[in-house]
Design a protein around this nucleic acid. Structure first.
Length: 320
DNA sequence: TCGCCATGTCCAC
DNA sequence: TGGACCTGGCGAT
């Protein structure tokens, strides 16, 4: 179940598994049969993510996919054996000699031309995973709005890639009242929230898991610094954030040894499809309604905001 | 086996 | 703002 980090990790996997080679495309379910026929046998040039949108580029058209709440697109190595027979509601299968990727339950799966792709991107706010993202663009869309920050963080035209878990967690990390209006939010608070997302989302990509607890973030960054996280070779090598830090050197070295990278990637791909990067699933507030706040012991509250369950601590996050 | 819920979005009212 | 839609997993029955 995807927020932006999941889609960026997926783009990396698709690129490594299928990039630069012809791909077999089919729609066992039939709902995408005509379009699959148009890309069948074409070279998959590149896969990239913007927020929660996935773009898979072919010479003449771009495959646009949005997984929605329940979609999945696992990439699996074949390891010499034939792919498992297609069954159930399988919208799209991508296949080559080494990998198979099965798309199920997307809310968008379509072939677009360049202007259509540009239109989707233009409607999105800055993505904290994009090294060139401009946080001020998001601030301009926040500061004049009389909507709560809890709603604004989920609004993809304000900020691209953040979903319900990250919004709950990041607001708690900064002790910010989720009901603070955009017009009331301090600029300094926004700067801290953005910087935190720029730190946290790449860890989510690297570990295919949302990590927000201090000890887990610390451990994740330690593993990154030790060069023990193969996932970042694809997504992070061009990240300004990490090029500006120690781990980048390690990443560049690992990336230079492509054979080792391939082996490591295969291992990672085998393991992390469940979105489990290996650390236990633990949050400050998300899905902890009624449990004691890990900071102050007060009960975590929940309330539906814009159709989604918001979780927060009424004491820690009193301040607007 | 059933019903509900989910890291999402869109549309009709 | 409520419902519809896409599918899988899990707890209750």
């Amino acid at each position: 179940m995807p927020e932006g980090h999941t889609i960026h990790a997926l783009a990396g996997r698709l690129g490594r598994a299928f990039g630069g080679r012809p791909v077999e495309a089919s729609s066992p379910q039939g709902r995408f049969a005509d379009e699959a026929g148009r890309i069948d046998g074409e070279v998959l040039e590149r896969a990239r993510a913007v927020g929660k949108h996935l773009f898979v580029e072919f010479p003449d058209e771009t495959l646009h996919i949005h997984l929605g709440l329940i979609g999945s697109f696992p990439v699996k190595p074949l390891a010499g054996s034939a792919p498992v027979p297609a069954k159930g509601a399988l919208r799209l299968r991508l296949l080559n000699e080494d990998f198979v990727a099965d798309l199920r339950g997307p809310i968008a799966c379509e072939l677009l031309d360049d202007p259509q792709v540009a239109a989707i991107e233009a409607a999105l706010g800055p993505d904290p995973l994009d090294p060139a993202a401009d946080r001020d663009r998001a601030w301009e869309r926040i500061r004049l709005r009389r909507k709560t920050i809890a709603e604004l963080l989920m609004d993809q035209s304000v900020l691209a890639g953040v979903g319900n878990v990250y919004r709950c967690e990041v607001l708690h990390r900064h002790r910010t009242n989720p009901f603070t209006l955009g017009t009331q939010l301090k600029h300094s608070t926004w700067e801290l929230i953005w910087a935190d997302l720029v730190d946290l989302l790449p860890l989510g990509v690297a570990f295919s898991q949302i990590l927000t607890m201090d000890d887990q973030v610390e451990e994740a960054e330690r593993l990154v610094a030790a060069g023990a996280v193969p996932e970042l070779t694809s997504t992070w090598t061009d990240s300004a954030r990490w090029l500006g830090r120690g781990p980048a050197g390690v990443v560049a070295e690992v990336a230079a040894d492509s054979g080792a990278v391939e082996d490591a990637v295969r291992d990672a791909d085998l393991e992390d499809e469940g979105g489990d990067g290996g650390m236990d699933r633990r949050f400050w507030v998300y899905r902890r309604a009624g449990e004691p706040c890990r900071v102050c012991g007060s009960r975590i509250r929940t309330q539906v905001v814009a159709g989604r369950n918001l979780f927060w601590c009424g004491r820690c996050q009193r301040r607007r």
